[in-house]
Design a protein around this nucleic acid. Structure first.
Lengths: 142, 142
DNA sequence: TAATAAGATGCAACTTTGTTGCAAAATATT
DNA sequence: AATATTTTGCAACAAAGTTGCATCTTATTA
C-alpha cells in the first residue's frame, strides 16, 4: 500500500512529499469519500489548510481523485479506481450517500443507465447520486 | 402569476412579505435554477443577505423549492413543480447543467430510470445531473 | 379599524471556508 | 554536493454562511 501510494505519485510525475502521501493514505484508509473538512481535521496538526487545498487541486487535475456533487456545500472527493487520464474522468459509477452515517461511497459495480435527453441537448457527463441507508447501517442497524 | 405567487405563500401558511414575493418572482422569471449568489445580486439593494438565506431556508422546508447538487460549492435552487409535501420532495426528474452558459435547468419530461443497488442498500432518493451543452447553446451556437 | 400577537427583517458581530503572494524549506536533478 | 525546481507555511485577505437581538411588518381579533 505504501507501495501503491508511491506508484501513484511517480506515475503522475509528482514529487513525493509528506502531505501528498498522508492524504492518499487517508483515501486508502477508508473506502468512502472525504470532504475537505474531513481531511483537514485528520491532518490539521501536520499540514497547513492551504496545503490541503492545493494538494487536492493537484490530485484533481491529475485525475487521481474525482469530485462528488453534494447538496450541502461540501464537495466530496474520492479516489479514481482506474487512473483517469489527466483532465478527463470516466467515473461512470453511482455514488451513494447514507442518510444515517453520512458516509459517501462509490458503487463501482453499479453502472449508470443510458439517459436520453430531449432533442438539442448534448450529454457529456452523467452523475448519479443515490441517497438512502447503507449496508452497514441497514444490517448492523447501529 | 402575481396570483400564483400569492397562492404559494398562502397555501404554505407563510406571511406575504416583499422578499418572499420578489424571490419567487425571480424563480418564475426564468426557468433555470438559481444559486444563492444570483439571488443576492438581483435583490441585493432591496434585501439583506441574511434575509435571502432565511427565505430560501423557509422555502426549502416547505417544499416550495428543492436543491440541486453541484461540484462547485454553490448549491442551486429550483422551484418544485408539483408542490412537494413538507420535508419530502419527489422531484424525480433530471437536472441538466450547461457547460457553456452555466445554466441549470430541470428536465421534467425526462424521468429517472430504475437503478438497482447491491443487496443491503436501501434507496430513498435518486439525483441525476447531466452536464453537457444545452439546447440554446447547441443550436444557437451563441 | 385599532390594538395586539406573531412573525420577518436588518444590522452587527462573528465563524468558517476558500484564495493569493511570497519567503523559506524540501524534493528532484545534474 | 550543488543547483534548479517544487512545495510548503504564513500572513493577509475575500467570500460565504450563521446568530442574537432590537425594530418593523404582517396577520389576527375584538
Amino acid at each position: 500500500m505504501e507501495e501503491a501510494i508511491l506508484n501513484i505519485l511517480k506515475r503522475n510525475q509528482l514529487s513525493v512529499t509528506g502531505s501528498r502521501q498522508r492524504i492518499l493514505e487517508l483515501f486508502f484508509g477508508q473506502q468512502g469519500a472525504l470532504a475537505h473538512g474531513d481531511i483537514e481535521k485528520r491532518t490539521g496538526e501536520k499540514f497547513d489548510r492551504v496545503t490541503v487545498y492545493r494538494t487536492l487541486q493537484v490530485f484533481l487535475n491529475k485525475g487521481i481523485i474525482h469530485t462528488i456533487p453534494t447538496t450541502d456545500n461540501s464537495i466530496r472527493y474520492a479516489l479514481c479506481k482506474d487512473e483517469c487520464e489527466e483532465g478527463h474522468h470516466h467515473d461512470n459509477h453511482v455514488h451513494f450517500v447514507c442518510e444515517k452515517c453520512e458516509n459517501t461511497v462509490c458503487l463501482d459495480e453499479v453502472t449508470i443507465p443510458e439517459i436520453s435527453l430531449p432533442k438539442g441537448y448534448e450529454t457529456r457527463q452523467v452523475e448519479v447520486i443515490v441517497s438512502g441507508v447503507c449496508k452497514k447501517c441497514e444490517t448492523g442497524k447501529r
